[in-house]
Design a protein around this nucleic acid. Sequence first.
DNA 1: ACATGTGAAATCGTTCACAGCC
DNA 2: GGCTGTGAACGATTTCACATGT
Lengths: 205, 205
Amino acid sequence: MVSHKTIERLIDYRTLLKTALDKGSPAIFSHQIADMTGGTAAQVRRDLMTVGYSGSPKNGYEIKDLLNAIEKFMNAPDGNKMILIGAGNLGRAILTFFAGLSPRFTITAAFDADPAKSGRVICGCPCLAREELEPFIRANTVHAAVITVPATEAQKVADILVAAGVKGIVNFAPVRLRVPSKVFVEQMDMASALDKVAYFSRHQS
Amino acid sequence: MVSHKTIERLIDYRTLLKTALDKGSPAIFSHQIADMTGGTAAQVRRDLMTVGYSGSPKNGYEIKDLLNAIEKFMNAPDGNKMILIGAGNLGRAILTFFAGLSPRFTITAAFDADPAKSGRVICGCPCLAREELEPFIRANTVHAAVITVPATEAQKVADILVAAGVKGIVNFAPVRLRVPSKVFVEQMDMASALDKVAYFSRHQS
DNA sequence: ACATGTGAAATCGTTCACAGCC
DNA sequence: GGCTGTGAACGATTTCACATGT
């Protein structure tokens, strides 16, 4: 019911508001949020309408309360348990990246087809065999999965994930995954991103 | 003049058509393209209108000719020279990833603030000192840049890139870059992606 | 019959503009 | 005066639906 774009921006606002709060600002105006995210003041106000928190014309928005409202609206539980499939170069870089994130997201297990990696701890994360994937998901809570296997394997992995009940996937492989509409896929396609940048950097503003 | 979304899809079609061509198919229908990219047939036809190639109701689209039309429309020169700033974990993973990518994109140089890395070859790519960044861009052709430095450094790096005339940026740092509208930025924000997946995997289809 | 190309309608998202409040 | 919240106008994108060709 609430638009995809709006959610993306709310996520932006949230991270922005957090840093503003850390700096000690008590309140903020819509045009300030707009400036910092590259949007317009009207759009910020529209977006904030959906979370059901009202500011005052005098002071704008109380940052602390607004943050609470956004988190409540997003229903963000403070722990997202995730898994990663494909502990190659990219996979390991992401595992390291996650270590810096937290505590909102934790990768509870990594999986790799290479038997040499099974049972070892890679970048602070236990690595299991590919065969363990489905049983693991059924036995543990897994909110979402990160796919970092080669393109040829990605759809197979996705099928297993979907069959086991995973509802969210971040896919780094350069293929569009075919999944039921109940499952949300976020495509992190570097190859497409490069093509896009190559195109737009050459054509008009 | 032609929409952002359409370009994204054309890029999708192109990669898809390439693999279809490799498999030996001579022609394809709009609904087949739609199925494979998760769109609708009508939309595919609309998108293809913009590249100015017409199929026939009998056979659909000649894949070879359609590919040519798309490439011509995108004006894709067969070499995009890029640079990467920030040779940390993520940066190195991306350098390796690029090696696997076609000849369409090559990273001609990497830059890092750490003096220990200067002058060395990292993942098959010469690494230079941060001070070399601006002179390098002015002396060589640089179509676009990939930013993989920590969030705190990203805006500074972007400012240098823009000042030196770079027109396209792929940004992996979790901050929105402020750049003139002449410069195109593609945000590859893993943190936001995770938040998005976390949200949509919990809320409706 | 079935697929294309494309006006026209419908849907979705953004911006305008103004009432109400401090 | 400057800001919020929001109906209404606007603009962009998607889908419908059908004439046309094979």
